[in-house]
Simulated scan of single mutants.
Amino acid sequence: MGSALESTDVRNKLEDLSGVVPKPGENPYDALIEACDDDPAKIQELYAAHRARRNAQQRARFLSPDFTELIIDPYLLRLENPAIEPGFVRPTPFPRTRVPPSRTRSRGATHPRYPAARGPQPANARQEDRRHCMTVWARPPNHVLELAEEVQRRLRAAAPHVWLMPAYRMHMTTLELAFSRTAAEISALLAALGRDAVRALADYTATPARRRAPARLVRPFVSYDLSAFALSFVPASGHEPRASPPPAQPGPLDDEHDDHHEGEPIQEPGQPPRPDRYTYHHLRRDLWARARAAGVAVDSRYVVPSAHVTLGRYLGDADHATAAQRRRWVDAIDEVNRWLEGEVWAVAAAPPGGASPAAPRRRFVGEWIVGQEKGFDVRVGTLWYGGGRTVLLGEGF
Rank of each mutant, 00 (worst) to 15 (best):
122 P>W: 08
257 H>R: 12
177 L>D: 04
361 R>S: 06
122 P>D: 08
193 L>I: 08
359 A>C: 04
284 R>F: 05
394 G>K: 05
36 C>H: 06
344 V>I: 10
361 R>P: 03
147 L>I: 03
34 E>Q: 15
377 D>I: 07
164 L>N: 10
1 M>A: 08
263 G>Q: 04
384 W>E: 01
206 A>I: 06
264 E>M: 14
126 R>K: 07
119 G>V: 03
1 M>R: 10
35 A>C: 09
42 K>R: 15
370 V>N: 03
302 Y>D: 11
223 S>M: 13
317 D>V: 07
25 G>I: 06
156 R>F: 00
319 D>E: 07
62 F>S: 08
245 P>T: 03
37 D>I: 03
343 E>C: 02
140 P>D: 00
331 D>E: 15
126 R>H: 05
362 R>H: 09
111 H>P: 01
197 A>T: 00
214 P>G: 04
122 P>C: 12
3 S>M: 06
118 R>C: 03
56 A>M: 15
54 R>S: 13
64 S>R: 09
82 P>T: 02
61 R>H: 13
147 L>C: 03
132 H>M: 06
5 L>K: 09
321 A>D: 13
29 Y>V: 07
267 Q>P: 01
85 E>S: 06
367 E>M: 09
346 A>S: 12
58 Q>T: 08
284 R>G: 05
156 R>W: 00
138 A>Q: 09
104 T>L: 14
383 L>P: 00
324 A>N: 10
116 A>V: 04
175 L>M: 14
288 W>Q: 11
384 W>A: 04
144 V>S: 01
57 Q>E: 14
250 P>H: 11
332 A>M: 13
125 A>Y: 10
173 T>C: 08
185 E>V: 04
343 E>W: 05
75 Y>P: 00
383 L>H: 00
379 R>Q: 10
283 L>T: 11
225 D>E: 14
118 R>Q: 10
393 L>M: 08
381 G>H: 01
136 V>I: 12
66 D>T: 11
340 L>M: 07
277 R>H: 13
104 T>P: 03
99 V>M: 02
215 A>Y: 02
176 E>A: 13
111 H>K: 09
51 R>H: 14
214 P>N: 07
293 A>Q: 06
379 R>V: 01
288 W>V: 12
61 R>A: 15
376 F>H: 11
364 F>Q: 01
392 L>D: 09
59 R>K: 15
174 T>R: 09
101 P>A: 07
192 A>F: 01
126 R>E: 07
380 V>Y: 01
293 A>K: 13
228 A>I: 03
372 Q>M: 10
11 R>F: 12
221 F>C: 13
118 R>M: 09
349 A>T: 06
213 A>D: 12
112 P>T: 09
245 P>W: 03
287 L>F: 11
103 R>W: 02
72 I>T: 07
220 P>H: 00
358 A>E: 14
369 I>C: 06
41 A>V: 03
223 S>L: 11
371 G>N: 02
173 T>P: 00
26 E>N: 11
236 A>K: 01
164 L>Q: 05
212 R>E: 06
357 P>I: 08
307 A>L: 14
33 I>W: 11
147 L>P: 00
98 R>T: 13
246 P>C: 04
55 N>G: 08
256 E>D: 09
330 V>C: 09
224 Y>G: 10
33 I>G: 10
60 A>F: 14
